[in-house]
Nucleic acid binder design. Structure first.
Length: 139
DNA sequence: GCCAACGTTGGC
DNA sequence: GCCAACGTTGGC
């Protein structure tokens, strides 16, 4: 089981929409590093869900339902791929990019270091810390 | 709206 | 195959 982080434009496909629809295909990746990450995803892997631009926070959790297959929205001559992901959780507490940057365990995350990579690997330690921080109780 | 960082392109 | 120039992206 591996962990990932997938980025979405909140005005294009927010976590709330995934929550409503239950699952979706993750298309539109046109970057070779991100493509390699998509190809490495296994069914059942968990993906942190990140809102970029106006969101800039980790907002939830998704799970890989179907491993990489041809992205039908791409030029067929180019072998771009997509995966299917299903909704798992919409965090009640978001973890902002600023918080990631300020956290000693999380400031080295690929999402922080390479803001333009839309599909990032996440280490076990990073994942566990994110889950811990997004599930802290008030008080 | 600006700009730094990154990826891609094209000339050599 | 290198690298400068350019375009795009995303955070601020």
């Amino acid at each position: 089981m591996k962990y990932w982080l997938i980025k979405s434009e909140p005005h294009k496909y927010p976590i709330a929409q995934l929550q409503e629809e239950g699952s979706t295909f993750w298309d539109g990746v046109r970057n070779y590093q991100a493509r390699l990450n998509l190809l490495a995803m296994k069914k059942g892997d968990l993906c942190l869900y990140y809102h970029r631009n106006e969101g800039k926070a980790i907002v939830g959790l998704a799970r890989v339902l179907r491993e990489a297959y041809a992205d039908h929205t791409a030029d067929p001559a180019e072998n771009w791929v997509m995966v299917d992901v299903g909704f798992e959780e919409h965090f009640s507490r978001y973890l902002s990019l600023a918080e990631l940057k300020a956290h000693p365990l999380l400031s080295g995350m690929a999402v922080v270091k390479n803001s333009r990579l839309s599909v990032c690997p996440v280490s076990d330690a990073e994942f566990n810390e994110v889950i811990k921080l997004t599930h802290l109780q008030d008080g």
